[in-house]
Structures are given as structure tokens and as C-alpha cells.
């Protein structure tokens, strides 16, 4: 019982301590981008440019004769 009473008192003190905290936010902050510096080399071109590309033409695979193997086989099978 004694321990419970002590814990309750400690809890009440703790709550009252939290209620006293006042949080304040900055109302205005200014960033000077010009004065910000980033370390490294500048590799981007000075002005915006678009390189002209050649049009890609897709050619169809037209019919081509690579060999006469089927005809050769037919010749021997059609001999008799």
C-alpha cells in the first residue's frame, strides 16, 4: 500500500512537470542560396542544347536463300 501511494505521488509530480514545457517555433527563416556552396566540379553545359540524332530505320528481314539442302534431300528421295 505504501509503495502504491509513493508511485501515485511520483506520477502526479511527473504530469505537472510536463504541462509546464512551452515549445516555440521559428516564425521565419531565410536561406541565401547564392551563398551556399557545394564542393565538386561543374560538368553541365553552359546553356541548354539538344544534339540532333539520326532517324533509326528498322529494316524488315527480306527473303533470302542461304542453301538448297531441302532440294538436295528431295533429289535423292525422288530418284526412285
Amino acid at each position: 500500500m505504501k509503495t502504491f501511494t509513493l508511485a501515485l505521488i511520483f506520477y502526479c509530480f511527473n504530469i505537472s512537470a510536463k504541462e509546464n514545457v512551452i515549445i516555440k517555433y521559428k516564425k521565419y527563416e531565410k536561406f541565401d542560396l547564392g551563398s551556399l556552396q557545394v564542393k565538386g566540379n561543374l560538368i553541365a553545359p553552359g546553356d541548354i542544347s539538344v544534339r540532333k540524332r539520326g532517324n533509326k530505320i528498322f529494316h524488315r528481314k527480306l527473303y533470302d536463300r542461304a542453301e538448297w539442302d531441302k532440294e538436295m534431300k528431295k533429289d535423292i528421295n525422288n530418284l526412285r
Binding site: I57, F58, H59, R60, K61, L62, Y63
Partner: peptide, 12 residues
Amino acid sequence: YEMFNIKLEIMA
């Protein structure tokens, strides 16, 4: 079908 392919190629 092969003839059709040639026709398409000519058009392209």
C-alpha cells in the same frame, strides 16, 4: 507473306 514484306519495305 514474303511479297507483303517487300511491299512494306518499299513503303518504309
